[in-house]
Structures are given as C-alpha cells and as structure tokens.
Amino acid sequence: MKKVSTVLSRILMVLLVAGSGFLLLRSSVTVNVPDTHKVVREVINKSAASSTDSSLKTSLKIAQKWGLEDKILAPLPQKYHYDLSYTSLYNLSAAYQANGELTAENLNLPTDNQTERAVNYLILKQLNENLNENSKQVGQLISIFQCFILAVLLVFILAALLILFGKYGASAAVLLASIGTFGALQYCSTQLVQILQSELAKGISFVILPQLWWGLAIGIFVAIVWPLCLRITKK
C-alpha cells in the first residue's frame, strides 16, 4: 500500500510539473494596440520622412491637407492585439531565419482589404529594414532565445526525473524553471512594449493571461508540496 501511494504521488507531481511547463510555454501575453489609426499615421509619417520618393511625400501632404487620412484609414480595425508566447516567438525566429524577413502572416496582420495590405507593406518594410540593419545582433538574440527554450525544457525534464527518483532537488529545479520562464516572458514583453511606445505611439500595453499565472502557481505549488510529500511517503 505504501509503495502504491508513493508511485501515485510521484506520478501526480510529474503531471503537475508537465502542466506547469505546458502552460508557461504555450500561454500568451497579449500586446494591445488601442488606437491602430494613430499608430498607422506614425508609421506613414516616418516612412515618408525617411523615403527619397518625392511623390510619396507630396501624396501624404495632399491627404493631410484635404483631411483624407481618416477616410483612407477607416477600413482598418480600431484596435489590434497580438498574442505573444514562447511558441509564437519561436515560430517568428524560425521564420526570420528561414526567409530573412517577416510577413503579414507571421504577425497575424489583417489582409482583408487593400488599405490593410498597403499599411502592412509599410509596417513590414520598416520592421524588416530595422531587422536587417541589426542582423548580426538579431541573429545572436535568436540563438540565445533558442538556447534558453532548450534549457527551460531540460530543467523541467530534470525536475520530473528527480521527482520519479525521489530527490529533494526537484523542488529547486521546478522553482527555477517556472519562475525563470514566467519572469523572462514578462521582461521581454515589457521591453517590447517600451520599444513600440517609443517607435510608434503611446498607449500600447500588454496583459498577462490567467493561464500564465496558473502555470507559475502550479510550479510554486509543486516546489512547496514535493518535499512534504517525499517526507510522508518515506516514513
């Protein structure tokens, strides 16, 4: 009976570790853009200012003079959000490595009408130009990110193995993996929003979804409960 309870408790703890890892790696932070029209205006103005095409600058001045901007931007959605997770970040990094650029599909940008496609072109042009200008640094960041993902997976696997073998060190492993994963995503989201606010417009924010909090809570729960469970089953 004691052996059965030991096995069952360890299997339960392993499942909780797996659940924590799954939620932390798959769940998202939502980046919210409350006023897409304002952001698009900023992108258009910056693109025109940096462009050597005089006709583009003239067209923009005419549109502003006659108040046509609002009519042109009317088909665009008023708000936009992007779900940012380790999975989506990994897919973005893999797409950039494979193609050397990001597309509207990679970023889930709407392409329902001509206005949206035109705006996407300007946004992607500016984004890809910035990425290409800093290609060496971007490549290094992608490599670090991919190594981090691998390390997190290995630590979660290590925590599960330590639980199966009845080791107290599992608590430290799962605590490190869960807090590190949660904290890193929150830090990346904060940095991204600050960059977007400085480059595009104020008001862009991010929200941590409940699933991420659950992943963190489960990891901390396992780290606290596992030593107690181990002591009880070893008596």
Score class of each variant (00 low, 15 high):
residue 136 K to N: 15
residue 228 L to A: 13
residue 166 G to D: 10
residue 118 A to S: 09
residue 127 L to W: 01
residue 216 L to M: 14
residue 50 S to G: 02
residue 169 G to T: 13
residue 157 I to Y: 04
residue 100 G to N: 07
residue 212 L to I: 04
residue 224 I to Y: 07
residue 40 V to C: 05
residue 206 F to N: 14
residue 162 L to C: 05
residue 178 S to R: 01
residue 111 T to Y: 07
residue 171 S to I: 06
residue 139 G to Q: 13
residue 145 F to I: 01
residue 210 P to M: 05
residue 2 K to E: 12
residue 10 R to S: 08
residue 182 F to G: 03
residue 141 L to E: 15
residue 176 L to D: 08
residue 139 G to H: 10
residue 214 W to Y: 14
residue 11 I to D: 10
residue 54 S to H: 05
residue 199 E to H: 02
residue 145 F to L: 03
residue 143 S to Q: 12
residue 177 A to T: 05
residue 27 S to F: 00
residue 91 N to R: 03
residue 124 L to G: 06
residue 19 G to R: 03
residue 162 L to S: 04
residue 69 E to V: 08
residue 187 Y to D: 10
residue 156 F to D: 08
residue 218 I to W: 06
residue 65 K to V: 02
residue 158 L to C: 07
residue 12 L to P: 06
residue 23 L to T: 07
residue 33 V to M: 11
residue 41 R to H: 12
residue 117 R to V: 05
residue 112 D to Y: 08
residue 183 G to L: 09
residue 97 Q to P: 01
residue 115 T to W: 02
residue 11 I to Q: 02
residue 153 L to Q: 02
residue 187 Y to W: 10
residue 117 R to H: 00
residue 117 R to Y: 00
residue 221 F to P: 11
residue 121 Y to R: 10
residue 203 G to Q: 13
residue 9 S to V: 10
residue 148 F to H: 13
residue 175 L to H: 02
residue 192 L to I: 14
residue 78 Q to N: 14
residue 96 Y to R: 02
residue 230 L to M: 13
